[in-house]
Write a protein that binds this DNA or RNA. Structure first.
Lengths: 217, 217
DNA sequence: CGTGAACGGATAGCTCTACTGTCCAAAGCT
DNA sequence: AGCTTTGGACAGTAGAGCTATCCGTTCACG
């Protein structure tokens, strides 16, 4: 198919498809002439993934490009492609921030918990800096007791991750597998956050007896 | 204190403080003359919160304004202020999207699980639409089996929410409590996502035996 | 074979967000 | 008195994410 059909079938405008081609999110079509190219179902699938990562996952165009590059790299260990994803999701802290007291306190908290739970993680994982940054922010805001939730978060996320990783091993096609992992991870963040809000509503109704927001009419 | 000191103590430039005042994120200082105003520690705390929500939580300026407005509204039930927060975090789906098959499928999945777990949540909660949107996206991408993780997510987030809600009830000052809840919820999303990445790395090393990314030198 | 739409490629322009800079007259400090 | 700072208004800026236009093919159809 050519770009017009790709546009019609994906719901993405031709101009935007051209933009994604320029930015390297979408691989070029197969050349069929000096200035003609053909696209296939792979391009269509890729395009739908791009829109999902951007619209639903909230990734930037650059982050999306990097994540997809990791998907396409056959040498990258599976979940490492994902560290890549998370690194592009959250902005890296500037060097200045890493030198203050709250940062050290946050890092201490995380290291302690990681050690206690016997997690095998590398400090190079961008998620490490992100987590420390959040904990440091709690400390700076004087809500350090919020950081006590860290143990709970680690316990529950370990269970989530165990299931997610287990659900992935039995697949065949690597490309499809990686795609599934990326989508599951990026969109999973959004889904988890939404489910958390629903759970909070449920639990606050249960425990605090706040009036339900439903006006019943 | 006046704006210069507020700037020095918060690390936010005077120009940006003026901008936040204009945009209604920061309440005006107490007038001490026709063109003079005084700010207090409350302003400083608020300013730090604004930076945390924007920089760490990833909220937009407008979303931050809305969340803070909910914090300031004494009539709003506690965790409903939060639904407000999540509503501004994720963009609402356009009406067109809600009419397609994948959307209905997603809504069916969520409703079934919510019913099964006996959750008391209202469909007006913006998190509902967000969750359905993610599930619908899974369906559209042909990764509907990812949606099977929904039960897992709901189970774990219920535990997280139960602890979070319980940790909140014993506080005294309502304003401080709401602040803590907002910070905990918004930054908690970021922290949970980062912890999930670390857990995924840990679990994938454990289960799949992928080589650790640490180059050891 | 002619003709009008669609194509790829390049480049310029647009809208929105989140600031940043400049100017002003009136305080404030010293 | 003289320099800085203030509150307030408003213009300008940089980057993100498209969108529009132009150009010289190329294709599809009569």
């Amino acid at each position: 198919m050519r770009v017009g059909e790709l546009s019609r079938r994906s719901g993405v405008s031709v101009a935007t498809i051209k933009y994604y081609l320029r930015e390297g999110l979408l691989p070029a079509g197969e050349r069929t002439g000096p200035n003609q190219a053909a696209y296939d179902d792979g391009h269509l699938r890729r395009l739908r993934m791009i829109r999902a990562l951007i619209d639903v996952g909230g990734l930037s165009v650059v982050a999306t490009r990097d994540v997809l590059a990791a998907v396409d790299d056959p040498d990258l260990p599976l979940f490492q492609a994902l560290g890549r994803a998370s690194g592009t999701t959250t902005t890296a802290p500037d060097a200045a921030e890493e030198q203050d007291e709250a940062w050290n306190e946050g890092e201490r908290m995380l290291a302690e918990q990681v050690d206690e739970r016997g997690w095998q993680v590398s400090a190079e994982n961008p998620a490490w800096a992100t987590a420390v940054g959040v904990l440091a922010t709690y400390v700076r805001l004087g809500d350090a007791d919020l950081a006590r939730q860290l143990g709970l978060y680690m316990r529950t996320m370990e269970e989530v991750a165990r299931h997610e990783v287990a659900a992935v091993v039995d697949r065949g096609d690597r490309a499809r597998t990686v795609e599934g992992v990326v989508v599951g991870t990026v969109l999973g963040d959004t889904l988890l956050a939404a489910v958390r809000r629903l759970a909070q509503q449920h639990c606050s109704l249960r425990l605090l007896g706040e009036t339900p927001p439903d006006p019943e009419g």
